[in-house]
Structures are given as C-alpha cells and as structure tokens.
Design a binder for these strands. Sequence first.
DNA 1: CCAGTCATACTGGTTCAACCAATTGCGCCG
DNA 2: CGGCGCAATTGGTTGAACCAGTATGACTGG
Lengths: 258, 258
Amino acid sequence: MEEQNQSSNIADSIFRELRRQILVGELAAGERLPGERDLATTYGTNRNTLREAVRKLEQARLVTVRHGQGVTISDYKKTGTMELLSPMLEAGGSLLEVVHILEDILPAREQVLEFATRLAVRRADSSDIDRLTGITELLITAFETKDGALVGKGFHRWLEALIDAGHSTAIRWISNPFLEAYRDILGRYPALWVLESSFPNYLRETLSALADGDEERAIAASREYYQRVDREFVVLLKTIIKPTLTGTPPPPPPDEEP
Amino acid sequence: MEEQNQSSNIADSIFRELRRQILVGELAAGERLPGERDLATTYGTNRNTLREAVRKLEQARLVTVRHGQGVTISDYKKTGTMELLSPMLEAGGSLLEVVHILEDILPAREQVLEFATRLAVRRADSSDIDRLTGITELLITAFETKDGALVGKGFHRWLEALIDAGHSTAIRWISNPFLEAYRDILGRYPALWVLESSFPNYLRETLSALADGDEERAIAASREYYQRVDREFVVLLKTIIKPTLTGTPPPPPPDEEP
DNA sequence: CCAGTCATACTGGTTCAACCAATTGCGCCG
DNA sequence: CGGCGCAATTGGTTGAACCAGTATGACTGG
C-alpha cells in the first residue's frame, strides 16, 4: 500500500471542500464566510476542527481572517499563485477557464525548462549526467511500449533529474509548481499525455548537448520539442472542451495518442 | 494607521517562529518536531492554538504530519516554491545562501517580465495603456526626487499594471511570488533599491512600444534594462555579504544610490 | 433634531480537559 | 527464538467556556 491520498482528515476534507467552492466560484471573492460556529455545525464538526480548515485556507491565501470581522474570500485570480493550478484541476470548475490558464502557462513552462536546461548545461557534474543517462534509456524503452502513463511518470523523473543537475534552489522552487501541475494532469487525464514521435530524439539531443556543454544546442532542442508538443496539447485541450462549452463541472476522460 | 503586520496572533507567531527555525536550519530536514503537547507548553500555550500553527506549517509544505507518527520537517530546498523567498528574507538566515538564490532568480524574473510584456503588448486595451501612462508619469517625476523607496513602490504599481494589461490569470499567478519578493526586499532594505539612470527611458520605451503594438521593441527594452540593473544588483549584494561572510543572522542595513 | 457615546451582540482568538485513533515498540507468552 | 498483543506515544476530534476586537444601534446630552 502506498496509494492513499484520501486524507481521512476531517479538517483537511473541509479545507478541500471550501477551497473547491472558492475555486469554482460558488463562493465569490469579497463574500463573507458564515461564522465559525455556523460552519462547524454545517459540516457536522466542532469549532476547533473547523478552525484548522480555515487556517489552511488562510495560509493558501484563499481567505483573509480578521478578528471581530469574520472571514472574507480573497480574489484568487488576482492574488493567487501557480500552486492553485492543481487544486483548480481537482476542483473541476469551468474547463474553459482552466484551458485559458493552461494556454498561457505552456509557454511559461517552456521558458522555465529552457532556464533549467541552461543551468544544467553549465553546472551538471558527471553524476548528474550519469543519472540522466540512466533515466533516459529507461524512458526511451518505455516510450516504445506506447504506455502514456508510464512515459509520463518516467518523464517526470527525468525532469527532476534535469532540474537537480542545475544545482540551483531557485530553479527548483520555480519549477516545482509546474512539476506538480504536470503530475496532477497526468494523474487526472492519463490518456491525455502526448506521445510525440520526436520525444526520444529530444531526450538524446539534450543529453548529448549536456555532455558536450553545448548550451545553445540544448536550448534549441528544448525549444523545438516543446513548441511542437504544446501546440498539439492545446489542440487536444480544445477538442476536449468543445462538447462541454457551457462549463459542465465533471471532467470528461479524453483519448489520444499521436 | 495602516502599517501593522505584527500579527498579534499567538498561533501565527508560533507559525512564523517555527518557520524561521526551519528556514535558517535550526530545525533540519528529516528531524521530528516535539509532540504537540510538549510544543504547546514550550510556547506557553494550549494544544489547539499550537495545532493551528502546525496546520499552517503543513499547508506551507514545511512539515509533514502523520497520525501516530508525529511531525517531520520537510526538505524545503527540494520541495519548496518561490513563496518561501520572502519568509527566507524575513528569517534572516545565511545571507550567502539567500544571495545564491537571488542570483539565479534574477534572470528568471527577467524571463517572467519579458513574458508579461509580450502578453501586455498583445492584449492591452486602451484603458490598460491609459493606466500605465498615468503611473509612468508619476513614476518619472518621483524618480527625479531620487527617493528610492518611493520609486520602488511606484514601480511595483507599474509592474502590476503591466501584468494586468496581459489579461492573463496565468502570468498573474506566475508573477505574484516575484512581486511579493520584490516588495519584501524593498521594505527590508529600502536603501538597496537601484536607481539606474536608464530607468525613465525603459518606462517610456516600453510604454511607447506597447502603444504601437511592437512586441520586439518592448522585449528589447526590457531585456536591456534588466540585464543592466540585475548586474548592478548582484554586485551590490556581494558587497553587502562580504563583511558578513560567516553567515551572521542579523540583516545589515546596506546603503547605495547609483 | 443631531451628534456623540456606550451597551450589546456579533465576529474570531484562546484555553481547558477529556477522549478517539493510528503507529510504534517493548515485553510477554507460546 | 518468534510471533502476538498490550501499552505508550503521537496526532485527531470534541465540547464548552471565556477572552478580545468590531460594528451596530439605541440612548443620552447638547
């Protein structure tokens, strides 16, 4: 057993539920939450447990709490961060909204990965390269099985290794929200993952450029690959939301393997 | 009165204190926190209040809590995000460490701002441009007074307006941690802010390129300005830490105005 | 009639004292 | 010696009472 994120925690469940309501707009920015005593009875628990949930909302910047005044819902679109992307997917709100966000995030992700690649080329030591080499081989083997989910997980490890090779806390911190979102999308829409034919080539090219210390070649490979994949990904996303344009909450399971 | 972030909150104080201890390494990753009952008496409070602090630490991903097992400190350098930058500055840990992180973050910030500029050029409407124009004029006036803190605050507003002009939740979310760190550095080291002579020119050039819809010109202005400023900034940072190489905790007030 | 003020009824903040539940490990028993 | 189970430890939940800011509105004095 190692798969059980269901959080049997009452406080955590309430936190997630309130977060969901905020993210899908059932609780609008500026509105006030009911009092803690009311909320506690609403969710069939006591005030202490309920308050733990509110503390988490506060820490996530989804609400602001002021003594004597109550709990106010924040405008997460203005004040939020990338860390909301995963909860947003989990909340399953307006797919149209999520797609718009993703469309703008993809080029940003490309920039981040280019930066990570740059740092890796400059700072990777032999053990970093060895590690990446090992993962690359496994990954290319997995790629030939056409198992999208497996390749996705392996690629996640590959990206982690690439980022680690940069030996930079900064790029780690910047990348983490992207990686998390990646993993989340992968887990939620396993069939969605794009298996682009140039994938093995991208891996090999990056690795070889890394070994040669050729920054520009690594960047070029990265840019070329992600621009192609992201284009496909967006097309795919748009075909997904087309039938559900009105913004139906339940996420439909898509299907694709180029 | 509008300046009072001192959080008279007990739970919040404990949260900040524990966060500080984690960020400066007094509590190392992998270590276990004392039990909640012990911690509560240590900080002279009760278990419920203490637990609220722990919930915040958990939400900030600084610790992981497991029923029956206790609270374990996470490796924030691996699993953290940009949102830790401000608390890190507040914690005042090893300056050397912070400088290394900042050195890698600056080029990333440039990328983010370029991206924000791109989106602004593509999507800004006339009201966005009007707003930016107004702020720009005020800002250039302020610049002539050589008041670093004032210019800093105004520039923060300018950046917000630029980002808003992109009409993108994604770039908002990506930028927010950078903006927050910017504001924090500004507040903590007011004299540090670099008044680069080409600043007004950067503002005007960006604005004019924005009005003309000339993406490449806007990007060029951005790139040229930030590369120059960031170079100065890093030099400045290094002169600051030189006298305190051993990693003395208290942040020294620097002094500079090019 | 208006303006200031104070009582009061909200709101969240803190405390206490139990008890429930998961995990660990020691020690007993086979 | 090995496996089982109890007991200690840790976090999770509960309920009730009281403290502390904030806003509201009724009351009072001008």
